[in-house]
Design a protein around this nucleic acid. Structure first.
Lengths: 390, 390
DNA sequence: TTGTAAGCGTTATCAA
DNA sequence: TTGATAACGCTTACAA
């Protein structure tokens, strides 16, 4: 059919239903909005209306509903994108869509059971654009926002706040903003990983950060690393700390560089899964074995780690779970069941594999208390499954 | 702040802007909707209005705009989920979020540059619920739909069609529906893979299907496989064909079963990345080497393949690209630049690695003609087919 | 060039 | 128990 043929199909309206049923619009609306409630409506009218609805194939226009009721049954999900994709580079590893996928699935898990939809925003922060400003019209579509950011002082969220929409961060709330957030304690985890490595006898521990030094996330991690060293009387040597970027060649350069430091590090903490894959590749090149030559722990898990050799020990931040919990918190605020400004710290999960035994790793289990999700109720089940299609 | 404190912040309306600027609502609207156009408006008025907009921090309500103009600047993305997640199973591989991520990123790529948003639907087809019915109110939020499905006779889309919304499938349009679609030719690819393996001397080629036999996708693949065998005068032996499901233990069972067939297959075509990982694990257990003992080709790529040993040769269906192209087609229809009912077949990309050299693999390059995307403009994602990877 | 007024498809407040 | 009618915030003829 030609584009011109495409009938701009007008949907059945409530008025038509009302007319068909011989009642007023108001009656139809009442009926529809008080399904379960015990509102007084003649059985006869009720029947007529529902018949009309069925016969006409009516369904309410959500835009109109949203306009007047201000409820859209949609929650917004905003995810940052920090680096442009580079699929032409064969070494490029698509962690971005993996990350997006996990977030989406986590949020989806919760929204689905509440029959909400997801309105997706992606922020191209590396382009310095796409900021969700207060005047961003897109906010009209949602009832609340889940906002993922490792960079909590980034000014975008201010606008969301000003808009008065409930908002939950996924990420470290380093500024202690009056906003709810859920995150993993980067400092604690790095401290604990470092402690384990120190106790295993390592004195030269490389730290590959995922972002520039000055980034909040890097600072948090560095702090944990340093605290652990200090606690055991080990010196901090900045040669062993490299700050990465999201650029493939930079990661590769770091991977090369860290093994050129002398004396060579005997253990490595790597801040991103893709970074780790580049390091692993470099280790292969250098014929370095793990854990024999270098013990490796990655912050951030990836299913590839389970299938390589050596299998890489990793701290799984369980992004999906973070997203799930964030969404639950958002719903609580939406429903007035909880105030904003709550902070939930999840503990993540250490996946011990070949590259490091991490004996004695301990992080208090997160008490996921007043927050109930599909995952918690289903007992540890965290994500939907799989369907590549073509 | 208490939930009760949360000010239901009323936004500035166009009327307020008009009042502030001393003009009528219509004038403001005109100004806003004809930014670039040469509509006649006094410079003086124009200034006053824009000043008012700035001072008041006004932004138009998209719900209201959508209600009257029927344009929402939002496109819907519907993705199926076929199996429940099973994260408690350590062998479970989260391909689902990976897949979602790629689709989302592909769509996002295009919507972003057109300043559209994404409204996300997930269909839990295994639950027989969540169908997007014609009366599904959620369709009100979107201008068009990208609908991913390996199962094109699934009746959901009918309702979208009835709604009159432009729709593009991602998946094989086996029913030749009057709907645009973009897909990889499963039959051709399987035929070509099989042909290569046969020409490499294999006569016993295992085919692990991703879905039940009767699934359309399985039929398409099987057809290609059989055609290639037939073309070379090889017998078809059904012992070498196993149909999988999305269940971990079933995939594992298949992995075991295929190696118990006698005489043992010397080559394997595996229908899903996670399936392949299970097979690889089993091969490790059986101390089978690849390609020496079994040559392996996977339909569907995964970054893990690049980092395992042996590295797995895979046909990358480039889901992200599919999603990108689908979205482009959708926009074309949306803008009346193209009729619906177009079918685009992408060629995907063979990633040659250790487990199979796939010498002589050839699939005609997809002519991605009137469709322009970030990927194509950046040159090379669609490019030549057989791309050995360093 | 600008303003008036009639929708868009709902919900919600009154009366009846 | 039901029905007018006024919002909700915008676009768009049609007038002025």
């Amino acid at each position: 059919m030609k584009p011109s043929d495409r009938s701009i199909k007008r949907n059945i309206t409530m008025s038509e239903v009302a007319a068909h049923a011989g009642v007023s619009r108001a009656t139809v609306s009442r009926l529809l909005n008080n399904r379960e409630s015990d509102i007084k409506i003649t059985e006869r009218t009720r029947q007529r209306v529902f018949d009309a609805i069925r016969e006409l194939g009516y369904s309410p226009n959500r835009l109109a509903q949203g306009l007047v009721s201000r409820k859209k049954q949609v929650i917004g999900l905003s995810i940052p994108s920090f680096a442009p994709p580079d699929p032409s580079n064969p070494s490029w590893i698509d962690m971005h869509s993996t990350h997006i996928g996990k977030m989406v699935c986590g949020v989806q898990m919760v929204t689905h059971q509440r029959r909400y939809d997801i309105h997706l925003f992606e922020r191209y922060e590396y382009q310095n654009e796409g900021s969700i400003a207060a005047d961003d019209p897109r906010l009209d579509f949602v009832d609340g926002m889940v906002y993922a950011t490792p960079n909590p002082e980034y000014p975008h969220y201010e606008n969301i706040l000003r808009s008065g929409l409930p908002l939950v961060f996924i990420g470290p709330n380093t500024l202690s903003l009056p906003v709810s957030s859920v995150s993993v304690d980067n400092t604690a985890v790095h401290q604990e990983i470092t402690r384990c490595l120190v106790q295993a006898g390592h004195t030269r521990i490389g730290l590959l950060l995922a972002e520039p030094f000055q980034a909040p996330l890097s600072q948090l991690r560095l702090a944990g690393y340093q605290q652990a060293l200090m606690a055991h009387g080990l010196p901090f040597c900045e040669n062993y700390v490299l700050a990465g970027s999201f650029d493939v060649s930079h990661m590769q350069a770091c991977a090369r560089q860290i093994f050129e430091v002398r004396p060579a590090p005997t253990a490595l903490i790597i801040g991103r899964p893709d970074f780790a894959l580049h390091v692993a590749r470099e280790m292969q090149r250098l014929k370095l074995r793990s854990p024999a030559d270098v013990e490796v722990v990655v912050y951030g898990d990836d299913h590839a780690f389970e299938h390589m050799s050596p299998r890489l020990t990793a701290f799984d931040v369980t992004q999906q779970l973070l997203a799930e919990q964030a969404t639950c918190m958002l719903f609580d605020e939406l429903n007035g069941l909880a105030p904003s400004g709550r902070h939930l710290t999840l503990s993540g999960r250490l996946r011990i594999r070949d590259s490091s035994p991490m004996t004695g790793f301990f992080l208090e289990e997160t008490p996921v208390t007043n927050i109930e999700t599909a995952a918690t109720t289903k007992g540890g089940v965290i994500g939907p499954n799989a369907v590549p299609i073509a």
